[in-house]
Design a protein around this nucleic acid. Sequence first.
RNA 1: GCCGGAGUAGCUCAGUUGGUGAGAGCACGCGUCUCAUAAGCGCGGGGUCGACGGUUCGAAUCCGUCCUCCGGCACCA
Length: 645
Amino acid sequence: MSRFYLTTAIDYVNSRPHLGTAYEKIAADIIARYKRLSGFDTRFLMGNDEHSQNVYKRAVEQKLDPLAYCDQMEQEFRDTWRRLDISFDDFIRTTEPRHTAGVVELARRIHDAGDIFEGTYEGWYCEGCEAFKQEKDLVGGHCPLHPAITPQWISEKNYFFRLSKYQQPLLEHFKTHPEFLQPDVRRNEILRLIEGGLEDISVSRAGQSWGIPLPFDPNSVVYVWFDALINYASAVGLGRDQSMFDAWWPADLHVIGKDITRFHAVIWPAMLMSARLPLPRQVFGHGFMTMNGQRMSKSLGTIVDPIKAADRHGADPLRLYLVKEIAFGGDGDFSWERYDERYNVDLANNLGNLVSRVAAMAHQYRQGRLIPVGASSNRLARVGEEAAASYRRSMDALALHDGAAAAFRIIDTTNEYIAETAPWKLAKDPASADRLTQVLFDAAEAIRLAAVLLTPMMPASSAEILRRVGASSDPLRLDRDARWRGDGERLIAQGGPLWPRFETPKEKISVTENPTPPPPAAPAAPSATSAVSAPGGDRIAIDDFMKVELRVAKVLAAERVPKSTRLLKLHVDVGTEQRTLVAGIAESYEPEALVGKSVVIVFNLKPAKLMGIESNGMVLAASPDGGKAIVVTFEEPPAPGTRVR
RNA sequence: GCCGGAGUAGCUCAGUUGGUGAGAGCACGCGUCUCAUAAGCGCGGGGUCGACGGUUCGAAUCCGUCCUCCGGCACCA
């Protein structure tokens, strides 16, 4: 039997999975289930990425051993995936010994190939800014912001991977394998990036303990990205079980988010080329999920909890909504309103109701037994066969949304067919007895066929529908079960509504009230003008707010960040000290215009590096949709350092 | 700023190599059946196909310019 090995990205464990993460797993799961249905011996891998400094820090914050913290997170992830009915065959964690074995093996191979070299990461370091400085940024050998401090020349030993060497081989591979990276938008972007030249990349970190030690220098650990990519190979036995590895490698498909395309379509294949291992057959970079048109972000409250979403109507309705609404590869939007709407239309009104009415008539007129007495309806059989063929074409091309739509064409046609044939009229005329039996049989058969096609999207619901129309649901095979079947007896089972209609309250959305009923509080559809409409049911306590320390800061100096269009580097006085911070306001403010102004900053924000500059704080500014930032200032500036609340 | 993609009905989108009077689903309105989950089915309103020029017998479709949005380079603090 031919095999199919597919993977999703492994997830950082520094927060619980949100709907965007879940979307990727659901899509991959639908592909995996489709492949099984198509008769492939399928292996579906997922996992967690644990060797990140952020994970380490998060664990330390919670006073946990990093591994214990990761164990805890693994449970959270597994719980979510179970709730969403994700049928992974294997789940790998980068802290497992089997992964280490794979990393060691691959690192050794690349090292043996001469593609790892020792280098130093070095530069001028300004203690005042706590950042490395470019030579060109220094004025007379000193940092312009700290003329009194002499910058230090610091260097750190690192190992580098000779990525540059693989520019041509990668271009060649892209040329000969147009399917390697999909969709095409992604492919073109990456092609241009490769054409623009590749730089060697650092693959190790010195002086850290959280990570996998390099086999040829135990004082360094493998850089987290290099480490993470290898999971796809270590999970199928690289460096540990050669026969298993031979059986499953190369992977047929890596399903990933578009943000990490470079790693999967450039670095990863180059690593494999260096190690003389076959390349994965395809990388698919899916789009992002937005919530009511806005990027999912914690601070905006636009994170959707996949478990809450599944609890609202069920895991299957959620899966169907995501895959049918969003063209696979493109970005997609989630809104509770739209989710409810699709649930009612597709499932309650069309599919669910169709199952109910056919079952009811089969029982009312034929005691639940349907035996075909003549030829099937030409129309239904033809639409069914056509839809099944189009479904397979779409699914093979990973056009999952089209696949789902094809299945629903059968359902729509069956509803039309019932209206046309009007079985309740046939039932009144004894002369039409055979005709009635056949009509009901055909309707049941059409439902069966649609349910088979929908199995990857809605595994549990499809099984229940198949049971109700008297068809078997275990080991389904597309080549056998996705054909119109005009023979055989059907014992129809009745049951309650598969998906009760969901009634949305009629009153219009208001800003203060919780607009939508129970499960998750559905934020009112915000107009395009307000980016900050707080979800009514998701307020924070005063204590939460008090964690944020806002203070008045006076701008002492400001300059543009080189090569950046949006960033300004500010040097500010916060009363007790002076700080450097970076703000994304260069599009609306000239640096000179800010000097001397008093602004509000988040004082107790963790430092972050932007364009190589460490930013110690964040300037508050309004961010109108599509407009330019407006910094919060004062008519009468208080003394620097004054607390704002 | 550079590169790429997109702008079609209130919303989400389809529209193959230019050619019958511009489509689908949802939402809305009307009608209708009664098997069914106030579901189904039928009909309908509504669009200067982003703007302006050009090529052509003919342009949503090809070309140019511009506007807006999105994405990547490259940065959400």
